[in-house]
Amino acid sequence: MQVDIERSGGFGGLTLHASVGEEQLTPGERAALERFLSQPPRPPSGPDRFVYRISLRGRQAIVQEDEIPPELRSLLERLDGAWDWPPPTHH
């Protein structure tokens, strides 16, 4: 299964997508992700911060940039440069 990640917001407001195989998650990343999947979303961190939507097996978590724990930050850093842009419909 795939973990689908959307990053929206930021000053630019560009909505980007990336995915990673579920099997590539470290145990720490998996545990952190599981926590977010089972809790309600928090209000926005503040203006122009990024917002992540992380989807796995039909469940999804909305994660504000400033609540990302170090275990998930490592996953997002691996995605840097892998964000899908331009979106397929505009290519």
Partner: peptide, 28 residues
């Protein structure tokens, strides 16, 4: 690192460097 954003955190203005792909380096 390669941060593609600038924002006001309630106290300070934070400027990323940009990743050179979506946003120019030093553009913000």
């Amino acid at each position: 690192r390669n941060y593609d954003n600038a924002f006001w955190d309630g106290e300070r203005m934070m400027f990323g460097d940009g990743d050179g792909r979506l946003f120019k380096i030093g553009g913000f």
